[in-house]
Write a protein that binds this DNA or RNA. Sequence first.
DNA 1: CGTATGCAAATAAGG
DNA 2: GCCTTATTTGCATAC
Length: 220
Amino acid sequence: LQPTQQIQPAPSITQPSVVVANPTPANTPATPQVHVSSSEPPTVGQLVSKSHSGGYDEDGINLEEIREFAKDFKIRRLSLGLTQTQVGQALTATEGPAYSQSAICRFEKLDITPKSAQKLKPVLEKWLNEAEMRNQEGQQNLMEFVGGEPSKKRKRRTSFTPQAVEALNTYFEKNALPTGQEITDIAKELNYDREVVRVWFCNRRQTLKNTSKLNVFQIP
DNA sequence: CGTATGCAAATAAGG
DNA sequence: GCCTTATTTGCATAC
């Protein structure tokens, strides 16, 4: 009943503009390259298309093998008539780590780092093999396998309300490094887990720092 | 509806 | 326990 303050499109006021006013540099003049973020690790897709020596990356990960599996995975997933969403959901029910639809999508597109891919591959491989096995026993078995328990491993991502973010930013402007007690108070005031608030400050500091020292020297 | 993706939570690892 | 730095990963939503 209460006219809950719905998602407001951010009131134009409260403009932080603390340290880094708005260093947004005019975009790179002539660099048709892919998103040139400061220092993001290359994805498997990018590396693999550069025809690396033998198809291995600097850490000895077999990029070719991953590319091949990713392609195969998608074909087999589709053969089972499953969506990325279903696979992601099904993975949360297994013993191993869980992944979202986004993760499945990125894996298939190789839009992930070799390290991540290396970690994902065995998980997906194992799951897919079992899914196919179930499918042979009958489609019903497959659907049971896909819709399992939601045993969660990773903490679910918190979504702060725009109001909460605004409040957090206000606190941050006053003090970017609150004490343990202050974090506790803020968490209680905004009604979020203390740990979530603590991490928010950590991430906020990190973002601010990274934003400040924008790529001065870049790609030779 | 399923898939792709931007932004930023959450996590890993070293102090 | 908390910090930083680097990175992984997912929610929300655009395509």
